[in-house]
Structure formats: structure tokens, C-alpha cells
């Protein structure tokens, strides 16, 4: 059910995504993440079109961390920030981070290879039902995504919504 992808550019870093529905302890999880007890990024899956979006954000976060150019304080918060089309940090957390009442959560962990125990420990903290990460597309709030990323219908004639979203994420620092 987990989706694991090694970052080709940074072979020491692997990204694992885990999707949970019917989550009952979102507020508690969020607090744990803030306190550093959960070493992962908690993302609102309704703002995701596809898990690829998370990979793009995570890759960029690791890159910026290595060159010392992160805009936020931690790798996990940087992943959330990178998902947003704007450079406003609090806005990014509001839209893309988990909020207290959320019923679904995408948990993203950047780790070394073969750390199944670490992943299990983190997942165990979620009180919810884990579903395949691919199911995220069932949760996507496409209308909201289109509005936030300002994707006009004509853009989707030459590419997918995912491409439109990813492009803005990749380029936002020079717009």
C-alpha cells in the first residue's frame, strides 16, 4: 500500500507515501509533527492530483536542504511549502498541510533505504485506515486545485492537470 520511490538525484534518500482514510487523530498527529515526534510530512490529500506531485516537492526539498537554501525550518515543512503554487508559507501550510479536523492524511517520509521499521513506527501513530496511495485521485478536490493553481481549461488541452500543477511548483521561485 505504501508508495516508495528512490530519489535518483539523491540516492541516499527514498520517499515513502502512505495514505490514510477515516483518520480520527489528525490534531494529535499534527501536534506530534510540530514537536518532532513524527518525522514525516502530513499532507492534505484533497490537494493532490497524483503522488508524483509529492515526489516533485520532496526532491526539491532535499535539493534545497543540501545547498542550504530551504525557505522553511525543516525538510518536512519544506515539502509542504513546495506543494504550494505561491511563496506564502502560512498559506502553504493551511492549504497543503493536515488540519485538525481532517479525515484523510497523506503521510510522507524521507528516509534511507530499507527502513521498514521506521516506517511502521510512524504509521502506527495514525488512527485510521490505510489505503493504496493511488487512491489519492479519488480524494482530489479538482475544482479547488484548478482554482488555487489558476489552471484555465485551455491549459488542459495541451497537457494534464498534474503537469500544470507540477510546472508551477517547479518554477514558483522565479515567477
Amino acid at each position: 500500500m505504501n508508495l516508495t520511490q528512490e530519489l535518483e538525484l539523491f540516492p541516499d534518500h527514498t520517499v515513502t507515501q502512505m495514505l490514510f482514510k477515516e483518520v480520527k487523530n489528525a490534531a494529535e498527529l499534527r501536534q506530534s509533527a510540530v514537536d518532532g515526534r513524527i518525522n514525516g510530512a502530513l499532507i492534505n490529500p484533497t490537494m493532490l492530483v497524483n503522488p508524483f506531485q509529492v515526489l516533485v516537492a520532496a526532491n526539491k526539498a532535499v535539493h534545497l536542504q543540501l545547498i542550504g537554501k530551504m525557505k522553511t525550518r525543516s525538510l518536512n515543512s519544506e515539502i509542504i511549502f513546495n506543494l504550494s503554487p505561491t511563496n506564502n508559507i502560512s498559506e502553504a501550510f493551511k492549504r497543503f498541510g493536515t488540519s485538525d479536523g481532517d479525515e484523510s492524511v497523506m503521510l510522507v517520509v524521507v528516509h534511507c533505504k530499507n527502513e521498514s521499521q521506521l516506517l511502521e513506527d510512524i504509521a502506527a501513530q495514525v488512527d485510521g485506515r490505510q489505503v493504496p496511495v493511488e487512491d489519492v485521485s479519488w480524494l482530489s478536490d479538482l475544482a479547488k486545485i484548478r482554482k488555487l493553481f489558476k489552471v484555465a481549461p485551455q491549459e488542459e488541452t495541451c497537457g494534464t492537470l498534474l503537469d500544470a500543477v507540477v510546472c508551477r511548483m517547479a518554477i514558483k521561485d522565479v515567477m
Binding site: V56, N59, K60, H63, C158, G159, D163, A164, V166, C167, A170, I171, V174
Partner: peptide, 8 residues
């Protein structure tokens, strides 16, 4: 149409 940008 132009190629999507993934990372810079």
C-alpha cells in the same frame, strides 16, 4: 504545447 518542467 511545451514540455512540462519537473525540476530546476
Amino acid at each position: 504545447p511545451a514540455p512540462a518542467v519537473y525540476f530546476v
